[in-house]
Structure formats: structure tokens, C-alpha cells
């Protein structure tokens, strides 16, 4: 039996390219436009890892960052260190890996939304919806900032910050998904923010790995 999985976010325009993947309808593109884009990545596999001895874990063979706020991105997998005992693992590119078997891992793909804001004005868009200082020169991407976006507790990852193509990823509880997406699109309307697909994420292309 096929499992049908539905993102909590539905944009008011239809994608031009869609791919069926692991039960999700994944929007690859919404047409040839320049950014900035709001991209729904809720279908991307995510895990929460909690243990009092995190350094002994090697999720997918990767090393967990030592300090809270640090991230590592390797082989399409982003690991965010949240606090002394907890980190999250987001699979952003490449083939879906086999789920870890340890009881310290919790699969949270269906429980959490993951959005990306990417493009030249991404930081301007974020400045309108959060008081977190993502433009701080003290931040060294990729890094994790935990705090409210539109008053919703989020994990915000400043993924890259070149002047032309800034990418910010943030995750939060699934129930807020549609409201958040609508509010963010509304906030960035005059900056040209529009829905985007996976292909609009530049770093996937740079990695040369498919969804």
C-alpha cells in the first residue's frame, strides 16, 4: 500500500514541475523566476537525537558539532547542535538514507515543517518576520539560532550568506505551517518573494546531487 504524505503548506500557485517521492508530492519548480523564494522542504527527512552522551553518536557516519549553535553540512546532511544533550539532523540532498536504529533517534519529518528563504533579499525578508540578528557579523554560516519567527519557536539555520544568494532554513511545529507560509509571503511581497521549488535551492545544484 502506498503511503500518501501531505505537506501542511499549500501555496496559492501550482508548481510547474512536480515529483512523487516517498509518498510526497515534491514541487521542483514554480517556473523560471528570479528570487527571493520561499521553499517548502517539509518532505525532507528529519531526525531528533537526544542523549546525555552525544559525542559517542555518529549519525550517518558524521560528527556532531561540539557546541550548541554550531552546524555541520556534509553529504547533503545538516546536523544542528541545539544544546548539551540534543541535536537535529536534516537530510537536505541526495538519496534518503536508512533511518538510524538507536532509540535515541526520533523521526520528526511528519511533525515539523521545514522552510527555506533563499535569494538576494533573503535577509531583508527575515528581518521583517523575526528580531533574531541573522545579519550579525559574529555568525559564521552554517550556524543555528534558536528563537521565535513570527512569535513561533523555530530552529533557524543561517546556511549561507554570500551577498547574492543567502539561504536561511527554519523548522517549527507542523500545525503552524500554512499560517507561517502565508504570513511570510505577505511580508516579503514587495521584495518579490514568491513560492519556489527544490530546484531553486542553489546549494543542491552546487553539490551536484539530486533530491
Amino acid at each position: 500500500m502506498d503511503i500518501r504524505r501531505i505537506s501542511p503548506i499549500k501555496f496559492n500557485i501550482n508548481p510547474t514541475q512536480v515529483e512523487k517521492r516517498d509518498g510526497w508530492n515534491v514541487a521542483l519548480s514554480y517556473g523560471p523566476h528570479s528570487g527571493p523564494f520561499l521553499i517548502d522542504l517539509s518532505h525532507r527527512p528529519k531526525w531528533d537525537l537526544q542523549n546525555s552522551n552525544l559525542p559517542r553518536f555518529r549519525p550517518f557516519g558524521l560528527i556532531i558539532p561540539e557546541n550548541p549553535g554550531q552546524c555541520t553540512f556534509s553529504e547533503g546532511i545538516l546536523i544542528n547542535r541545539m544544546n548539551r544533550t540534543q541535536c537535529q539532523i536534516w537530510h537536505l540532498a541526495g538519496k534518503k538514507p536508512r533511518a538510524p536504529r538507536s532509540s535515541s533517534y526520533t523521526e520528526i519529518t511528519d511533525g515539523q515543517c521545514l522552510l527555506a528563504v533563499t535569494g538576494p533579499s533573503a535577509l531583508d525578508v527575515m528581518e521583517r518576520i523575526t528580531n533574531l540578528d541573522l545579519a550579525s557579523p559574529a555568525l559564521s554560516p552554517p550556524c543555528l539560532i534558536q528563537g521565535p519567527v513570527l512569535h513561533i519557536p523555530c530552529q533557524v539555520v543561517l546556511f549561507s550568506r554570500p551577498t547574492a544568494q543567502t539561504t536561511i532554513l527554519f523548522s517549527f511545529s507542523r500545525g503552524y505551517g500554512q499560517t507561517m507560509a502565508d504570513a511570510i509571503l505577505h511580508s516579503g511581497k514587495d521584495l518579490g518573494l514568491r513560492p519556489g521549488g527544490e530546484e531553486d535551492l542553489d546549494f543542491l545544484g552546487a553539490l551536484n546531487i539530486d533530491g
Binding site: 541545539m82 544544546n83 548539551r84 540534543q86 534558536q146 528563537g147 521565535p148 519557536p153
Partner: peptide
């Protein structure tokens, strides 16, 4: 308690 942040 950092309710909206790191949960510590």
C-alpha cells in the same frame, strides 16, 4: 527557561 529558544 528559554521557552522560545533552546529549551534550556
Amino acid at each position: 527557561y528559554h521557552r522560545d529558544g533552546c529549551g534550556v
